[in-house]
Write a protein that binds this DNA or RNA. Structure first.
Length: 453
RNA sequence: GGCCGAGUGGCAGAAUGGUCAUGCAGAGGACUGCAAAUCCUUUGACAUCGGUUCGAUUCCGGUCUCGGCCUCCA
């Protein structure tokens, strides 16, 4: 079986050949923790969680690191606005993030390093870059000199000229070149910061991922992921730092081999983002739709494509998830965890083609309803598992948070009596009443079943 | 302005140089007191103009439209 991924570095779909098949290593850029994550952030998390699950299915060991950016101007601003201590802000936000991820069936990565826990490594990296002549100090800042790295632009496919032409930002006067970026910046007294050979200050944003990926995965690893909006400048700058620190060039590098980027989540044709204000927090949506529905909705589009966020789309996803769980409800018996069917794995092997995999899931679903066998159930459930779906008990899915079960059962009893007396008018009235309560009735050979709509 | 990407049936969304995507919705049927669930059958598409080809939704070029990045961003 051949596994392929679209590699942003080469702009091509490539065969995936891990450095060490006994331990596949991946790094994904995580959130800046100053506020609740929105659904766009969730897409990235769900996509790479699915990649993680898929790799775990195929390889004996996968090491996955995803960072928390817990030192950043946005956090400092929030602290200034609210007066809340910075650690309180970051701790609280990390906890929210974990809660949201849990409801989306997103597994915890093997490592979740925080930038503030990696300061010594970052300072070391800056020192290294200065010593090797790739970085310079100016007005308390340490800046990376992009002209010293021949390969600058390998990932985002831009030339220096493009960047100068396209410049929309005012260039800080202390920069030698407009594209130079900050490795270390000064902090004022009383502001968050650390002592360093370049003065009291804090790291630039790009630095942490280079330092953390090296710390937890080594100088070379397999996959580096993130949203497409991180390609430039974030990942381009990471490449510049990390290549130069390890003394490699663009062709013979030692950093990440495969750069995988997910497409943006769109709202009315525009990217969902905090700055545009067109966002829903994950929490907002979780209150209306189960996490698995949101997850299914996200995986029904290929990760590389933009995905339009609509409530119609979520409703559609919910319909399908209800059908899936209904099938599990109807075919009794527990299923053991085993390897997913090869056709399903093959679909995912093709650049994590989740829509294709879901099409196969539908086939397995149809087959399950026809065969009604435990074997068919196993194939279905074990496929869904790789996508992080159908992980809960079907009963819980349909009845989980219903708090008036007694009333429902009583009404069903009344309806049964009415049916026995062939009083169908009354029976239908009770059914309609239950429907208004959000409960759906099914008359089956095994008796009456109920579930929430 | 520069760089990158996309345009598929009512909606969502894959693959593919010639034969069924798939799902939701719709239509007809089976089952049911009627429903629901399930099963069977079914309608319907490849932005546009050229080119290559025996044949193009699929390859190449132009046009139009849309989006992302170039500032923080998943």
């Amino acid at each position: 079986m051949t596994i392929t991924f679209y590699n942003t570095l080469s702009s091509k779909k490539e065969e995936f050949l891990p450095i060490n098949p006994e331990n596949v290593r991946m790094y994904v850029c995580g959130p800046t923790v100053y506020d609740r994550a929105h659904v766009g952030n969730a897409r990235s998390a769900v996509v790479f969680d699915s990649l993680y699950r898929f790799l775990k299915e195929v390889f004996p060991k996968v090491t996955f690191a995803r960072n928390f950016t817990d030192v950043d101007d946005k956090i400092i601003n929030k602290h200034k606005q609210t007066g809340k201590p910075i650690t309180e802000i970051t701790e609280e936000t990390i906890q929210w993030f974990h809660e949201d991820m849990d409801t989306l069936n997103v597994l915890r990565p093997d490592f979740e390093p925080r930038a503030t826990e990696t300061i010594p490594e970052m300072i070391e990296l800056v020192k290294d870059l200065v010593d090797k002549g790739f970085a310079y100090e100016a007005e308390g800042h340490v800046l990376f000199d992009v002209t010293k790295f021949q390969g600058y632009g390998v990932l985002s496919k831009r030339s220096m000229e493009d960047m100068i032409e396209g410049a929309r930002v005012e260039v800080a006067p202390y920069k030698k070149n407009p594209a130079d970026f900050v490795l270390w910046k000064p902090s004022n007294e009383g502001e968050v910061g650390w002592d360093s050979p370049f003065g009291y200050g804090r790291p630039g944003w790009h630095l942490e991922c280079s330092a953390m990926s090296k710390k937890y995965l080594g100088e070379s690893f397999d996959i580096h992921g993130g949203g497409q909006d991180l390609i430039f400048p974030h990942h381009e700058n990471e490449i510049a730092q990390s290549y130069c620190a390890c003394g490699c060039d663009a062709k013979h590098h030692k950093y990440a081999n495969y750069w995988v980027h997910n497409g943006m989540l769109m709202v009315d044709g525009k990217k969902m983002s905090k700055s545009l204000g067109n966002f829903y927090s994950i929490r907002d949506i979780i209150n209306k739709y189960p996490g698995e529905v949101i997850r299914f909705f996200m995986l029904s589009t290929h990760y590389h494509q933009p995905l339009n966020f609509t409530f119609e789309g979520l409703d559609n996803a919910k319909t399908v998830m209800n059908k899936f769980y209904n099938a599990l409800l109807n075919i009794k018996g527990e299923v053991k965890q085993e390897q997913a069917p090869s056709e399903f794995i093959e679909a995912l092997s093709d650049d994590l083609n989740t829509p294709k995999a879901i099409a196969i899931l539908h086939e397995l679903f149809n087959n399950l309803n026809k065969e009604q066998s435990l074997e068919a159930k196993s194939k279905f459930v074990n496929s869904a598992r790789v996508l992080g779906l159908l992980l809960q008990d079907a009963e819980t899915w349909f009845k989980g948070d219903v708090d008036n079960e007694g009333e429902i059962v009583a009404l069903i009893g009344e309806r049964n009596d009415a049916k026995k007396n062939k009083d169908y008018k009354k029976a239908d009235e009770i059914r309609a009443k239950l429907f208004e309560m959000g409960i759906i009735i099914e008359d089956t050979k095994e008796g009456v079943k109920w579930k929430k709509a």
